[in-house]
Design a protein around this nucleic acid. Structure first.
Lengths: 222, 222
DNA sequence: CATTGAACTTAACAGCGTTAGAGTCCTATC
DNA sequence: GATAGGACTCTAACGCTGTTAAGTTCAATG
């Protein structure tokens, strides 16, 4: 007489009593693979494989691949928490904008997803913080919307272009200009796209200075 | 005796003695289809079909689909010529930046391609014009690079976000905020994402004012 | 008239996102 | 303690994609 309930005869000692998958786990795996392999290498099959699961299993937790990308994009901003609001609203604005850019550049695939509506909780929380800081500074009405959008658009544009030149070959890009100095005399002379002439960080900070300085002045004039 | 050289007996009166296809024709067709059907509907097959040609025929003139997209993106800026440079360099900067944004918004698929290196002749010509105007205004060195990048990044960011909200449902987006007023008190109060409160054109112009005003001031201080 | 090379076609491949439907397991209920 | 049902995963397959390999056609050249 054989024991049919032997551990060795049962197919699995303790098969998944809790769901193996979850939205959370899928998104984390997606971010991991995006960081490691780049955006064009992320497929539903590779993602499922990394989670030791069949591709179609993902569709129970997620509607489409686009959902995965939207969630991954928002998750980027969950890593870096919104900085605490200090007494100085100007410092708060700077801190938020800096961390915003930093979060995107930490995941270089993120900027290439800015073409889709970003309404995740983490993105919205950042916009809320930014606009709240302005309100604390007495900015209101049309001016408030203008400044919020200006900063958001500037951060997005900066992250996109910086991410591009991080992946692309800058010397090849520079070559496109120097190959035709007659058409691009100013760009040639100014060393446009010259890597290492000034750091992206420095250029970003100076541009941020310019934007926020104008904010102050237009406020004083008022 | 039958005439074998009759027009009606020849298979084709004048079969393609000259190449039917060209890079130029492919790019124009691509832009047309992108405008009509959107970026996710453009396939090598649909493009070829529109040109009455086999998909693989395209690969004689173009290396990959990405080439087609890069060429189409640059072509967007061929439509709107670089404005002539007037005596007023500030007016030149404004005119260029306005037409830059307008060109992208005229082809709403264009902003979603900003994630790739844009080094086409038409894009470079615009950057050259922009930087040349600044040089005429006495801007140089680090300041020149900062201002060029600031404006370029601002235009890119603006075009991206505006194109998003043109395709997406703004009221649904707004709902994401109003559904949770406790988390987004400032955004709720300010009417962030409220369509029609202020026009995109107005917001862009005011932001442009803010940027260029600060340019002038930092110059005067110097 | 043979050769060449540009321009295009036919055929096919591997991989993609996604769906349909069946199976498996846990939990709640009678 | 059997059973119903839903949560979760798998097997199988579909139609579509970008792309390559190997011809075919045809004007131009020697």
């Amino acid at each position: 007489m054989t024991r049919t309930d032997s551990v060795w005869l049962r197919s699995d000692p303790s098969p998944r009593t809790r769901p193996a998958l979850s939205r959370q786990r899928i998104v984390e795996a997606a971010v991991h693979l995006l960081d490691r392999d780049g955006i064009e290498r992320l497929t539903m099959r590779s993602l499922a494989g990394h989670l030791s699961v069949t591709p179609t299993a993902l569709y129970w937790h997620v509607k489409t691949k686009e959902d995965v990308l939207d969630l991954a994009f928002d998750h980027v901003f969950a890593d870096v928490p919104v900085p605490p609001s200090t007494g100085d609203w100007r410092a708060d604005v700077r801190a938020l904008v800096r961390s915003w850019r930093a979060a995107m550049l930490r995941h270089p695939w993120a900027p290439s997803l800015v073409g889709r509506p970003a309404l995740g909780p983490n993105v919205l929380a950042r916009t809320e913080f930014l606009q709240a800081a302005f309100v604390r500074g007495g900015v209101a009405g049309l001016d408030l919307t203008v400044k919020t959008r200006l900063l958001a658009n500037f951060v997005i544009g900066s992250a996109v272009t910086e991410a591009i030149w991080r992946r692309a070959d800058p010397s090849a890009a520079r070559g496109r200009i120097t190959a035709d100095p007659a058409s691009y005399p100013t760009l040639t002379a100014s060393g446009h796209l010259d890597a290492g002439r000034w750091s992206d960080d420095e250029l970003f900070e100076r541009a941020l200075d310019a934007i926020l300085t104008s904010s102050d002045q237009s406020k004083e004039v008022r």
